[in-house]
């Protein structure tokens, strides 16, 4: 009962592994799959460094067991990068220097990706509220808000011009 075979689509690739029941999803991704882009900052669901996408929505990877991901689709920073899904966010974070040490960044980007997809008209205050569960000790958040706001703006303009965002 404490070892389970799971099948997960991780970053588009079907993965089969045997996992221990107590292993949380981030340890599975980091240790079993060497996807070290997701980070552990607290393991209590507070800091947001382990935020990833499961079945298309942002979740705390430390608050989900690997065994629960059986049958699910998991996208980590590595997959989101390779697919190009967050290329505009990554570019804006780079231009605004919306990261320093980079430890929170993969989780911040996962959260931001959901924000820009779901709240295309978010203002600065709404951006701050949405990322308020992702801790960043380095930036003071201002540049992260700038970066996300610029992506929202660019996507709005692209829509207004009739192009796909």
């Amino acid at each position: 009962m404490d070892q389970h075979d799971i099948s997960v689509i991780v970053n588009g690739q079907k993965i089969r592994r045997r996992v221990s029941a107590r292993q949380h999803l981030i340890d599975f991704l980091r240790n079993d799959l060497s996807l070290t882009g997701s980070h552990l900052g607290c393991e209590h669901g507070v800091c947001g460094a382990c935020t990833i996408q499961v079945d298309g929505v942002a979740v705390r990877g430390c608050l989900m067991l690997a065994v629960q991901a059986d049958g699910a689709t998991v996208d980590t920073i590595e997959g989101l990068t390779d697919s190009g899904a967050i290329a505009d966010l990554q570019d804006a974070f780079h231009r605004y220097n919306a990261l320093q040490c980079g430890f929170c960044t993969p989780g911040m980007l996962s959260t931001a990706a959901e924000l820009v997809a779901q709240h295309p008209d978010a203002d600065r205050e709404e951006i701050r509220a949405h990322i308020s569960g992702n801790y960043c000790r380095c930036t003071g958040y201002h540049s992260i808000v700038d970066a996300i706001a610029s992506v929202l703006d660019d996507r709005r303009k692209a829509r207004a011009n009739g192009g796909a965002a």
Partner: peptide, 9 residues
């Protein structure tokens, strides 16, 4: 890390 436990879906 969590202590050991069993799991049933």
């Amino acid at each position: 890390k969590a202590p050991p436990f069993g799991y049933v879906k």
